[in-house]
Structures are given as structure tokens and as C-alpha cells.
């Protein structure tokens, strides 16, 4: 493949105090591909994801998203970019407990300025697609872990992101539910053309990716990278 990279990290470094969480990490993500980020616990996977998504500021290195330099961007522009272009799924859904599942899924659209009815209609369609239409009116505390993760996936996809960042999205699920969530997530991403950065230490989860990179001691090589 020779597609222009969507997201490219080069020699990214990030320390927390004396801990070098990232010590020269490379990663290239092209439009529509699912890249698994693997590696032992504490190797820096989540930190890499946070830097790529502009949640955490890297100490040094280059981070480019569609040609724009993420490190040079103001905080305001970066959060605007996160809202418009990125979707997120974490190990524990991180749904807003006071809102219904439907309202949770509608959040990204509401933040983008869509009217409630239009936003909730789209949210309902995504819940349907992820086979959890029946929990639309329930609050996150009233649904199972597997259902909650599907709701979180729906929320990540609803606004049509170009990249979905997923950090151990199935970490709290049994293997059957985990597989279902992975299937739904990757199918939806492929259909909408969204790329997925999938952090996982589980090989069976990584097997849903198109390729993998391994982070060790804060370092990663990307053999697919375009120079």
C-alpha cells in the first residue's frame, strides 16, 4: 500500500518524572486500516495512544495528522480536532452515568451542534447496528459490561470519525462478548472508512487488526512506515 499516511508518529518521547514512558516510538496509520498496538504491561501503549490522539503532549518527536503538526497546535485546536475527527473507546466504557445510553451516544453530535432530535435519531440507528437498541432508554449502570462497550463503540462512531482510538476495548469482557465487540467495531470501521488504533495485549483481539506493531520499553518500530 502506498496511501498517504493519515497519522504518523516519529521518534516520540514522553517522560513522567523519571519514567520514560515513550523512548522513541514510531507508528504510521493509513486511512481505513486497523493497527494493533501490542506489548507488555507498562511498555507505553496507552501513552502512545494518548500522544497520537493529542490527549497528552509529547516531550519531543513528530506527530502529524493529515499533514498537520499536532505538537505545534494550540490546546483549543487539538480538542476541536479530537471532537471532529477522532472517536474513543476505553476499557471501561466511560459513559456518562446520569444519561441514558441513547443520550450518551448522541453526545458527540450534540457537541458538534446537531439538534437533539436529529442527533438521537442517528444515535438510535447506531445502537441498532451494534445490536443494543433495547438498552437505549437505560442508564449505563443498568446494562451489562458487553452492552456498555457496544454503546461506547456506537458513541465513538456516531460522528463519523476518521480515526478511532481504542484502548483495551474488550479488556473487561469475556471472550465471546469481546469477540462480538471486536467484530462490530472493525466491521463498522471498515464500512465507514475509519482507521482504528487498537491497543491490546491479547493476541485474539489483535487478530482483528490488519497489522500490528509492538511497543517494548517505550520503543516501537513500524516496518510499514513510508519514509
Amino acid at each position: 500500500m502506498t496511501t498517504e499516511p493519515l497519522l504518523q508518529a516519529t521518534d516520540v518521547r514522553k517522560s513522567y518524572g523519571r519514567t520514560a514512558a515513550l523512548d522513541g516510538a514510531d507508528l504510521t496509520v493509513r486511512a481505513g486500516e486497523v493497527v494493533a498496538v501490542m506489548g507488555p504491561s507498562g511498555s507505553g501503549k496507552s501513552t502512545l495512544l494518548h500522544c497520537l490522539a493529542g490527549i497528552v503532549r509529547a516531550d519531543s518527536g513528530e506527530l502529524r495528522y493529515r499533514g498537520q503538526d499536532l505538537t505545534a497546535m494550540s490546546d483549543g485546536r487539538r480538542s476541536a480536532l479530537r471532537r471532529s475527527d477522532f472517536g474513543f473507546v476505553f476499557q471501561f466504557g466511560q459513559l456518562v452515568p446520569e444519561l441514558t445510553c441513547l443520550e450518551n451516544v448522541a453526545i458527540p453530535l450534540r457537541l458538534a451542534g446537531e439538534r437533539r432530535r436529529a442527533a438521537e435519531a442517528k444515535a438510535a440507528a447506531w445502537l441498532e447496528r451494534l445490536e443494543v437498541a433495547d438498552v437505549a432508554g437505560q442508564r449505563p449502570g443498568e446494562v451489562s459490561g458487553g452492552q456498555g462497550q457496544r454503546v461506547a463503540v456506537a458513541r465513538a462512531l456516531v460522528a463519523g470519525p476518521r480515526v478511532i482510538f481504542a484502548d483495551e476495548p474488550t479488556g473487561a469482557l469475556d471472550s465471546l462478548n469481546g469477540e462480538r465487540v471486536m467484530r462490530l467495531l472493525t466491521d463498522a470501521a471498515h464500512d465507514t472508512g475509519a482507521a482504528v488504533v487498537l491497543v491490546t495485549h491479547e493476541a485474539r483481539v489483535a487478530a482483528y487488526s490488519d497489522r500490528e506493531i509492538v511497543v517494548r520499553d517505550g520503543k516501537s518500530r513500524d516496518t510499514e512506515r513510508v519514509s
Partner: peptide, 20 residues
């Protein structure tokens, strides 16, 4: 070990695709 992991994952991907 790295080479082997890549080889294993390649096969796991194939089997995962087949499962769809």
C-alpha cells in the same frame, strides 16, 4: 521470537477473517 510472533499473528488473522 519477534519473527515468530508475527508469523503466529498472521495465521490468527487469517482464521479470524474466516470466522466471519
Amino acid at each position: 521470537l519477534d519473527t515468530q510472533r508475527a508469523e503466529h499473528l498472521r495465521l490468527m488473522r487469517e482464521l479470524t477473517r474466516r470466522k466471519s
